[in-house]
Each structure stands twice: as C-alpha cells, then as structure tokens.
Design a protein around this nucleic acid. Structure first.
Lengths: 140, 140
DNA sequence: TCTTGCACCTCTAGTCGCTAGAGGATGTAG
DNA sequence: CTACATCCTCTAGCGACTAGAGGTGCAAGA
C-alpha cells in the first residue's frame, strides 16, 4: 500500500499530470483517495491502469475503445470477442491509413522531384495542387 | 463571369458548404460578393482556389501551410523554394507516419493472432495492452 | 397568389484528446 | 523562515471543422 502523488504517478506511468486528471474527469480512471492536504493519492493498481491506457493510446485506440477494453479487463471471465473485435477494427483502420499514406507519399515525391527549384510558375508542387488531373492517384 | 451560389460551389469543388464559410472566416478564401438577397456569389477563380485547398488538405497539408502555398500561387514569379520546402517537410512527416503505423500494424496483428477467442483472462489483446514488456517494438 | 420546401443566412456551441495558464494552497529542503 | 517545487481548481485554447437553432430568400407547382 505505498501511495504516491500524482507527479510520481506521472513519472512512473509516462502519462502527464494534467492528462491523469483529465482521465479521471472523463471516468477512465477511478476517483483516487486524497491526502490530508487534499492531494490525490494513487495506488499501484492505478499505475497499472495508467500504463494500460497510455499503451492503448500509443496504439491509436480512441478513448471510447479504451473504456471498453478497460471494462473487459475488469471482468476477465467474459469472452474476449469484444476485445478481439476492437483490435481487428483498429488493424483495418491502420492498414487503410498506411495504404492512403503510401499513395500520398508517391504523390509528394513526384511533386518534390518535379520541382526545378526555379520560379513558382514552373513549380510542380503548386501545379499539381492546382490541377488535380495531374495526380498519380485519383482515389483521394 | 458566371457567378454561382455557395451550394453550387460546394458541389463543384467537393468542399462542404459550412467548410467554405469557415475558410472565408479564417481568410483562406476572399470575401465573396453578395446577391441582392445577401447570398454569397462565387466566381470561377474562387472555385479553382477551393479545389486547390481541398487537394492540399487531402494531401495532409495544414491550413497554415496552405496559406503559404496559396500566397506563392498568387505570386508566380517568386522562387519556389518555399513550396518545395513545405512539400519536402510534409514528405518527411508522411514517411515517419508510415514507419510508425507499420510497427503498430505488426503489434496489432500479433495481438489479434494471439487471441484464442476464449475468455478475457487468456486474451492476448488485453494482455499486451496491460504489459508493455510484451510488445514487439519498444520504440513507442 | 399562395404555399411548400429547399437552400441560404448568422451565430453559438460541440467534437477529440488533450494542453496552457491563472490564481491559490500545500509540502519539503536548507 | 523562506524559497521553491508541486499540488489544487477552474477556464480557455488548440485544429479543422461539424451540428444545430432560428431566421430569410427563392423557385416551382396548385
């Protein structure tokens, strides 16, 4: 039962102090007990939860998805179909995002390579932006 | 000089009506003339500008970058080094983003594949989120 | 002419996930 | 005792829109 301050929790979890308070506000984190001087006082389990949240955020899960994942974690005997579905949906999103960014990269490369570093009226960057018809990929 | 309404401009440019008004508000688009009934009235040049903006947004350029690109387009005799620099910076961002998303994809795939579709307490998705040490990539 | 109904107008507030700052209380080291 | 860091609450801001309220304009059919 070694209780720690919010600052220490921030240091150990990698989540910033105002963000911890924000997570409490939106109900991702339980309301912690307070010290005599009204300061938040966290337990190891809170720390674990913070690391879980941080990690999920780094993987790009939205707060609502994390809310669901946390409630699943809190009820470990339930079937994990939901967790699986959330992760799969995220995977599909990420794959889609990679595809569109790759197309985008090709287009930017064309723009940059085509730029003769002369005047704007000969600049391929501006030209391509002005005329969509010159795009390599018309999907967007 | 065929003037069009904001709705028609939206249809032809692919930029939504409230977004056109928003662009006017932040100064990306000139303040258009008005009809007798106080309705915005756009010219072909506005339409071109809207398409330019839409295209740049689709390529992920921020509004401030677009502001610069537009001012370059308005002064075609200047050297295009700025446009080139903006596009290059965006390219670097995109490449970085693709790299991190690819790492993320690998991690999500591991999570999804490892999930035995049983109960939460055996679920790899939850497990990996809870314990950062199990990640394939520790960079994040 | 009337009326229906869509498109337009302005303005404010909400979205997401924080982040920054004001203004004050508490805790700790020298 | 005095700094100074850290904590507290509260409000407002970020980017790039989006949604909605409450009202006006306009074109076409009955």
């Amino acid at each position: 039962m070694k209780k720690i301050t919010i600052g220490e929790a921030a240091r150990q979890s990698g989540v910033k102090v105002p963000t911890i308070r924000y997570y409490e506000g939106i109900g991702l984190l339980r309301v912690p007990s307070r010290s005599e001087g009204n300061q938040r006082s966290y337990e190891p389990s809170d720390l674990k939860r913070l690391v879980f949240i941080r990690h999920a955020r780094e993987l790009g899960f939205e707060v609502e998805a994390i809310r669901t994942l946390l409630s699943l974690q809190d009820n470990p005997l339930q079937p994990c179909a939901s967790a699986d579905a959330i992760a799969k949906a995220r995977l599909v999103e990420v794959e889609q995002r990679i595809r569109s960014l790759t197309a985008l990269k090709a287009e930017l490369e064309m723009m940059v390579e085509g730029c003769g570093h002369g005047r704007v009226d000969q600049c391929r960057v501006i030209e391509v932006l002005a005329d969509h018809g010159q795009c390599a990929h018309h999907g967007h």
